[in-house]
Computed example of a mutant assay.
Amino acid sequence: MLLSVNIDEAGYSPDSTVLKNIHFSVDSGELVGLIGPNGAGKSSTIKSILGIMKNVKGDCQASNYAYIPERPILYEKLTLWEHIEFLLTTLQTDEKLYMTRANELLKQFQLSEFIHRYPESFSKGMQQKVMLVLAFLRQPDLYIVDEPFMGLDPRAVKRLLQSLQSEKERGAGILMSTHILDTAEKICDRFVLISNGRLIVQGTLDEIRERSGIRGGSLLDCFDVLTEGVSDVRK
C-alpha cells in the first residue's frame, strides 16, 4: 500500500470541520480517482495528505511521492532548463539517464524550444506541462495529482494520460483529483466519491453502479444519485 488515508475529521481551524470520515487507500500500479464537484473537499483531502491541513483528527501515510498541484508552483528566477538541473541536485539518480529522460519528456510535451525561457512568462497550460515534466522526472512511488487537466490542450491531455499509464505499468500508484467525470471514468481503476466533505462511496465503476442502482450508468449518473440529499459537514 502506497497511500493510506484515515481522516476522522479535518478543518482549517479547530472549530471548523470541512472533512469527515474520509478513509481510502492507493496501491501499487493503480490509478484512483478522487472525484466530486467543485467544493466537494477534494483539495482539502489532498492538503490533509500533504500535511498542510493543521487540524486533522486521523492519520495519513504516503510513500515517496510527487505532488502536481492545480496551480503551478515555479521559481521566478530560473529558466525551464534550470528547473530541470535543480531537480537533479535533489535526486540520487544517474545523470545521463536523467538528462535523456528530461529531453524525451520535453519533446513529448512540446517544450523543447522553450528550455532557456522563464516559465513565469508561460501560459497556464505551458506552466502545467512544466510541472508534469518535473514530476515524471522524479519517478516516485506515488503521484498525487490535483485537477491535472485544467489549462491543457487536447494533445497535452493525451500525452499526460500516456505518461500516467506508463507510470502505472512501472508500478507507481496515482491519486488523481478531478471533477471531469467522463475522463475519470475512462482511465481510473477505482473511485473515491466525495460530496460536501464526506466520503459517499468508493470502489470500481461496477461497484458504484451497483450501489447507485443504475445498471450500465455513467459515472456522472451514479454520482448524481449517490450525492442527492447529502448534507454539508460544516452545517
Rank of each mutant, 00 (worst) to 15 (best):
D59S: 14
F114P: 00
W81S: 04
I68L: 09
P119W: 09
S112G: 03
R117K: 14
I52D: 08
K54S: 15
L50G: 04
T90Q: 10
L97S: 15
G36I: 09
K57N: 12
Q108L: 13
T90M: 13
I49A: 14
L78T: 02
L106A: 01
M99F: 11
T45R: 00
A66W: 00
G29Y: 15
P119Q: 07
Q127I: 04
V130F: 08
A102T: 07
I84V: 15
L134W: 05
D59E: 13
G39E: 11
S123N: 12
D59P: 00
S121I: 12
G58T: 00
E76M: 04
N64D: 15
K96R: 13
K77L: 14
R71I: 12
I73C: 02
S48D: 03
L34G: 06
E120L: 11
D94T: 02
T89M: 10
L50V: 05
H116F: 07
E70D: 15
L91N: 03
A62P: 12
I84C: 04
Y75K: 06
A66G: 01
R117C: 04
L34A: 08
G33F: 06
R117S: 10
P69Y: 10
I68K: 05
L97M: 11
Y75I: 07
S44P: 07
L87A: 03
E76Q: 11
M53K: 12
F109H: 01
Y65R: 07
E30Q: 14
Q108C: 05
L31V: 13
K54G: 13
Q92D: 14
M126L: 14
R71C: 01
E104I: 06
V133M: 02
L111R: 09
K57L: 10
V32C: 08
I52P: 04
K54M: 10
Y67V: 11
N64C: 05
H116I: 01
N55M: 01
I84R: 02
A102S: 14
G51P: 12
M99N: 03
S43K: 02
I52K: 09
L78W: 08
G36H: 10
G33M: 03
F114W: 02
A40R: 08
L34P: 06
F114A: 07
G125T: 02
S112E: 15
F114L: 12
L50M: 08
E120F: 13
H116G: 01
P119H: 07
Q110A: 12
I73H: 01
M126G: 08
K77N: 15
V56I: 14
M126K: 07
Y98R: 05
I49H: 13
K57W: 03
Q128Y: 01
V133I: 14
K124C: 00
K124I: 01
L31P: 06
A62N: 11
L31G: 06
V130Q: 06
K42I: 11
A62R: 15
D94Q: 03
S123V: 14
G41N: 11
G125V: 06
L88Y: 15
I46N: 05
K54L: 13
K57V: 12
N38L: 03
V130M: 08
K129M: 05
R101F: 03
A66Y: 00
G33R: 03
